[in-house]
């Protein structure tokens, strides 16, 4: 058995060196071929080692990820009580709690800290595309869709998730909206914890709140103790009042444009940027717009 392992190890070493030589010579074809052989050899080695150690002892599984005290995302698989909740439902719950467009990172953090969920970033990347596909094949077949936020060009905003049942004004983002939405989310998290003293004891929840609070003026005393949810909510509301008027106007204007210019699908999932670009180019129209004056960019879309 160990002869075979030795032989495999020699082979693996040789192949690794070969792959790296090929990579350095920028010869991807050879590298790919060698890499495939390498993977096979490594699998054979793994299998042999496991087989070798398995009888009698548990040593063979030592290296398996589950036995390691855990990449955070790996171990804790399912929500409390064995209740199985789909990824899309977990995202929906988190977004509903937040009440504003949010990035997958924040959605996952909220789901984990406040809703005992277990989302992985990778699970969220394909989500929006799947939702759009489902909508296209049977429009409005589901009670809600997880969809895009819309930019001032009515294209999908990268990395922002929303819920289809929200009013359009909430789903579009003007220049001030990222800040407004962050403050809205912070308020939501703070209020959730303020209303649930038990949840507020969870260190994950406190970390999330502290991370948000440190970026809001007046939300914390310089690093002393855990943040007070009421104070965080108050500070967020205070700054929000500064931006709210203009943001509401911007969003109403964008929502009006989205309503008049986009079809159902584009209203949920955003207009394709490529179309926008093509139109602009044909029109010889240098893009001089931004913010609220984005009309030229999307003119005549439909």
């Amino acid at each position: 058995m160990s002869d075979r392992l030795d032989e495999l190890e020699r082979r693996i070493d040789g192949l690794r060196a070969g792959v790296r030589r090929a990579m350095r010579a920028k010869d991807p074809a050879t590298a790919r071929g060698l890499r495939a052989e390498l993977r096979a050899a490594e699998r054979a080695w793994d299998a042999l080692v496991t087989e070798d150690a398995a009888p009698g002892t548990a040593a063979g599984t030592d290296g398996a990820p589950a036995a390691v005290p855990g990449p955070r995302t790996g171990g804790r698989g399912r929500p409390r009580g064995g209740r199985l909740v789909t990824v899309r439902e977990q995202v929906h719950q988190a977004l509903t709690l937040l009440g504003a467009p949010a990035q997958p990172r924040l959605v996952a953090a909220v789901s984990e800290a406040l809703l005992d969920g277990a989302l992985r970033g990778a699970q969220l990347t394909s989500l929006r595309r799947d939702e759009e596909r489902s909508f296209v094949s049977s429009p409005y077949g589901r009670p809600y869709y997880l969809c895009a936020a819309l930019t001032d060009r009515l294209s999908p905003a990268r990395g922002l998730l929303t819920v289809s049942t929200w009013p359009l004004e909430r789903r579009v983002v003007g220049p001030l909206s990222p800040r407004v939405d962050f403050l809205t989310c912070a308020m939501a998290v703070a209020r959730h914890l303020g209303a649930d003293p038990v949840a507020a004891l969870d260190p994950r929840a406190l970390r999330l709140l502290a991370r948000m609070a440190r970026n809001i003026p007046g939300a914390t005393d310089a690093d002393l103790g855990p943040p007070d949810p009421d104070r965080v909510a108050g500070a967020a509301a205070h700054e929000l009042a500064v931006h709210a008027g203009r943001d509401t106007r911007d969003r109403a204007e964008l929502a009006g444009r989205a309503t008049s210019q986009l079809d159902d699908r584009a209203r949920l999932f955003g207009a394709s940027t490529l179309i926008t670009v093509a139109r602009d180019t044909v029109a010889g129209d240098t893009v001089t717009t931004s913010g609220t004056a984005g009309g030229t960019a999307t003119r005549g879309r439909r």
């Binding site: 930019t151 001032d152 060009r153 294209s155 905003a157 990268r158 220049p175 001030l176 909206s177 990222p178 800040r179 931006h243 940027t273 490529l274 926008t276 670009v277 602009d280 180019t281 240098t286 893009v287 001089t288 717009t289 931004s290 913010g291 960019a297």
Partner: peptide
């Protein structure tokens, strides 16, 4: 706090858009 993502326009318009902004 106003935030502008210049990349909201297509790749080959980004430079012109940056200039305009």
């Amino acid at each position: 706090v106003a935030y502008h993502d210049v990349e909201n326009v297509g790749a080959h318009l980004r430079h012109a858009h940056t200039r305009a902004l």
